[in-house]
């Protein structure tokens, strides 16, 4: 198992960098080209959510991403340190219910719709989002 770790300050500008790094490593790990857009978007969503949460609760603390090549899967874990108990709920789509707080849950909804496998661990000490995609053996075996 090879791992790349990245920590960055809670600044919106760094989210793009995180997306680019994750996409590059996914490609190198052997994630299919057709899935790379999904990796880019899902990682971007997780990092955007973390940045917004840190800016609200702990702007001085860094956000951490771990990217792993683990037994034929490319796994990404985004961890923040902002208290969270977000739970996605099914709601009917109507413009009236699209409040800012409802929209803040879009990120996780998008991740859930994109990643092959997602786990969200909210806690008072921060949220951890783990997501993974299949990596083909034709990819580069080492990170």
């Amino acid at each position: 198992m090879a791992t790349v770790e990245l920590t960055f300050s809670a600044l919106p500008a760094h989210v793009r960098t995180a997306r680019l790094v994750a996409t590059a490593i996914a490609r190198r790990t052997g994630v299919e080209e057709s899935l790379l857009d999904e990796v880019r978007l899902a990682v971007g969503e997780a990092c955007s959510r973390a940045v917004e949460a840190h800016r609200a609760h702990c702007p001085g603390e860094p956000i951490r991403i771990e990217l792993r090549d683990d037994s034929g899967r490319f796994e990404v874990t985004v961890s923040d340190q902002a208290p969270s108990d977000e739970i996605m709920q099914e709601r009917t789509m109507d413009l009236g219910v699209l409040s800012d707080s409802f929209l803040s849950g879009f990120g996780i909804a998008v991740i859930a719709g994109l990643a092959d496998d997602v786990e969200v661990f909210p806690s008072p000490k921060g949220m951890r989002i783990r997501m993974s995609w299949p990596a083909t053996p034709n990819g580069h075996p080492s990170l």
């Binding site: 969503e45 929209l103 998008v110």
Partner: peptide, 8 residues
């Protein structure tokens, strides 16, 4: 590229 922030 468009993410949920853009949707918002």
């Amino acid at each position: 590229f468009l993410d949920s922030t853009g949707l918002g």
